[in-house]
Design a protein around this nucleic acid. Structure first.
Lengths: 224, 224
DNA sequence: TATGTTAGACACAAAACTGTCACACTGAGC
DNA sequence: GCTCAGTGTGACAGTTTTGTGTCTAACATA
């Protein structure tokens, strides 16, 4: 649960700093954006685990950002607002926000909600992704195929994790490249293929987890 | 998302009735318990999808019920409390509650939270086109005929998606060609026919979805 | 510095897909 | 029935996409 990446979208730098400090103290890493446009850019280029989103923002308000992000992702979103009107809150939920916190709020409450939300969304309280014949222990950074550990290089591990965290979704080479290599990587997309090849070799009899989606990319497939 | 079973644990019958009415109006079914012991009994005997749990209860308070249920299940829990102390809220989250609502609350807010929580927990918010005997899962880029996956080539998939997204409409070869192959494609219109043929073969017993409209093109027909 | 490992690129091989065409078939109109 | 325009279909070759072996550079390690 540690080391999750949290994007803080807030135009007031003092508030941003405050939230960021509290979260870092809890072991999360944070990214910041001071307007809605930047928020969406950062989100598309990075593998964000949770978003804290202020409503009052320059360049797309929070509602808009929330809606746009919900079109492409189900990442958990916490809305922050100065107003505490019920209709606002209802509107936020309609747009797909997961939590709604009214300013002024206690940082402790915020941290608690972040924790709960991450826990609910990302784990059954463990950092282990377990499939039939394949186990990824993120805490230990170890992977087991048929209960035998296989040793992966960092990139191989990141790639496998990313795939396994998005099961049953056809992922394009571009998406994979952006999320695993980073938004600033402009290398050959076929590099993804090369790493897929290496992963498949190491997965051996369980390579069926990685399916090719012709014309698109790859898909992590759970059922045999 | 409808027809989910919600357990309301609350000792005041008026409040129980109020919540129950609101939820039923939204299409949920409700069960009620007026103390903690009964709540746990009911939960163990029934397939509950969400619990609304008051803190002040005879026979095990809400904290205890929450803890006991968390030992055996990860069902979503919303805590209700008259107090609004921060420490209480934090304690609730520690115990594994998913939401925390302070009385007095607006029933609308409650319903909104129930909805969001259910959606988050039970739906994968996927892009799925579903017909009787045919299912197109766009996220996974998979197609099922009578619950058996069929593997389509990229063009076949695009063509089927386009047809299925425009049901009951006679689509000319030109329209199909423009939308599926792109406006700058100037190949033989009969190519569409060839792909329709291939699709029909793969659809097997469900090929009736694709009807020929003589002199025009094809139509995706939903009813058998 | 020597050695071993990892990452990225690339070319070629292998596999899969696509468009075209010719011919068969169908059905509507006469 | 016959005609004919429109549609169905099988075959095939060219094209596209993916798989894979290998090379080089970067990097870490001792």
């Amino acid at each position: 649960m540690q080391n999750k990446k949290i994007l803080i979208v807030e135009d007031e730098s003092r508030m941003r700093r405050l939230i960021s400090d509290y979260l870092k103290k809890e072991g999360y890493s944070t990214l910041e954006a001071d307007n809605g446009k930047k928020a969406i850019d950062v989100f598309e280029d990075t593998n964000i685990d949770l978003i804290i989103l202020d409503i009052m923002l320059p360049e797309y308000d929070g509602w808009t950002v929330c809606r746009k992000i919900r079109e492409i992702s189900s990442v958990p979103i916490i809305l922050l607002t100065a107003r505490s009107e019920e209709s606002d809150e209802l509107f936020g939920f309609e747009l797909g926000a997961d939590e709604y916190i009214t300013k002024p709020f206690s940082p402790k409450i915020l941290v608690a909600r972040v924790k709960t939300l991450l826990k609910r969304v990302y784990s059954s309280s463990k950092n282990i992704l377990s499939f039939n014949g394949l186990l990824i222990d993120d805490s230990a950074h170890k992977v087991f195929v048929n209960d035998v550990e296989i040793v992966l290089t960092p990139k191989e591990y990141e790639l496998l994790s990313f795939l396994a965290e998005n099961p049953e979704i056809a992922l394009s080479r571009e998406t994979i490249s952006t999320k695993v290599w980073g938004y600033d990587y402009f290398g050959d997309l076929r590099t993804v293929d090369t790493h897929i090849k290496r992963l498949r070799i190491k997965l051996g009899t369980q390579s069926h987890f990685i399916q090719t989606v012709r014309g698109v990319g790859y898909r992590f497939e759970v059922q045999k």
